[in-house]
Design a protein around this nucleic acid. Structure first.
Lengths: 155, 155
DNA sequence: AGTGAAACGACCGTAGA
DNA sequence: TCTACGGTCGTTTCACT
C-alpha cells in the first residue's frame, strides 16, 4: 500500500459509469454506453482505467445475515504498545471484517462477524483479549444495520 | 426489509463460485465453470439464484481516499428518544456511509466520509449534533484502514 | 440440478480521427 | 480519448438427462 496520496478527479461521464456499475456490476459495456452516451469501447477503456487506478473494483458482496452469521459487533480496542502490530494480528482473524487505526478514546476499531453468541464469546475471550498489547476492549453489538454504502465520490 | 430470518446454507461449489466473483465480479461464467468444475450454464443459474435470494450481489465498490475524501471517522452516538428516528435522519446524509443501531455505550454507530477537516467539522456541528434526539457524539477519526472485507460465508 | 449445441450478443484488439 | 469494425469468445435458449 502506497503512502503517497493518489487522488483522481472524475468527470461526469465516469461518475455516470460508476453509478451504473453500482446498480449492477455485470451490466454490459454496450448498455452502459447507451445510458451515458458513449460507445462500448470507450466505456470499456474507462472501466479498465478506473479499475487499474484502484478507484473502483467490481466484486461480489455477500450478506452475512443470510449466511447464518447472526452476530455482528464493532469493537473499540485500547492498545498498550504499537497499535499496528495488534492491528495486524486482528487482520489475520477470519471473523474480523474491518480493522481501522483510529484517534480518539480507542486506538483500533474492529468489526467482527460470528455465527452466534457462543462463537462471539469464544472469539472475544480466547482470541482477541488474549492478544499481546490488547489493554481493553469495548463491544458494540449490532442490533440492526440501517445503511451500508460501498460507493463514494459519485456526487 | 424482512424481519424473518432467512438463512441459506451453501455447498462447496457455491462457495467456490462466490470466491471467484469476490476476486473479479466480471469474470466470465465459462471461466468460473472451469475453476469450479461446472458447465457455464450451471454457474449462471447458481449466480442468478444467489443474487435473487439476496445472498450476494455484484457491484462496483469505490475507494473514498482515491477520490479526494481524505477524512473518515466512526461516530459513536448517544440518543435520547427513539434511536430509529435518529438513524433514519443520519441515513439521509450523503456523507454517512454506514449506520447501525447498537447495544452498548452507544445507541448508534455511524461512519462518515468527508473531503477535509473543514467539511468534517461542518457536518458534525451543523448537521449531526443539531439533529433532534442526538444527546452526545464521540468521534473516532480514521488514521489508517488495515482491512476491509465485503465477503462473508465462504469459509 | 445438470449437460450440450446453435444463435445471438458482448467483448477485445486494432486502426484511424 | 473517442468511434468503427471484424474476429473471438461468452451468454442465452432450449431440448434432454
Amino acid at each position: 500500500m502506497s503512502t503517497i496520496r493518489n487522488t483522481t478527479t472524475l468527470d461526469a461521464t465516469s461518475k455516470a459509469i460508476i453509478e451504473q456499475l453500482q446498480l449492477d456490476g455485470r451490466r454490459s459495456y454496450a448498455e452502459i454506453g447507451k445510458a451515458v452516451g458513449l460507445s462500448e469501447a470507450a466505456v470499456r477503456q474507462r472501466v479498465q482505467k478506473l479499475t487499474e487506478a484502484g478507484v473502483m473494483q467490481i466484486v461480489a458482496v455477500t450478506d452475512p445475515m443470510r449466511l447464518g452469521f447472526n452476530r455482528q459487533a464493532m469493537l473499540g480496542i485500547r492498545v498498550s504498545g504499537d497499535t499496528r502490530v495488534v492491528a495486524d494480528r486482528l487482520t489475520e482473524l477470519p471473523e474480523v471484517t474491518y480493522v481501522v487505526l483510529s484517534a480518539g478514546s480507542f486506538d483500533i476499531l474492529a468489526e467482527i462477524v460470528c455465527a452466534d453468541d457462543d462463537a462471539l464469546i469464544e472469539l472475544l475471550n480466547q482470541r482477541i483479549r488474549e492478544l499481546d498489547g490488547v489493554a481493553a476492549t469495548e463491544t458494540f453489538l449490532y442490533l440492526q444495520l440501517k445503511k451500508q454504502k460501498y460507493d463514494w465520490g459519485t456526487r
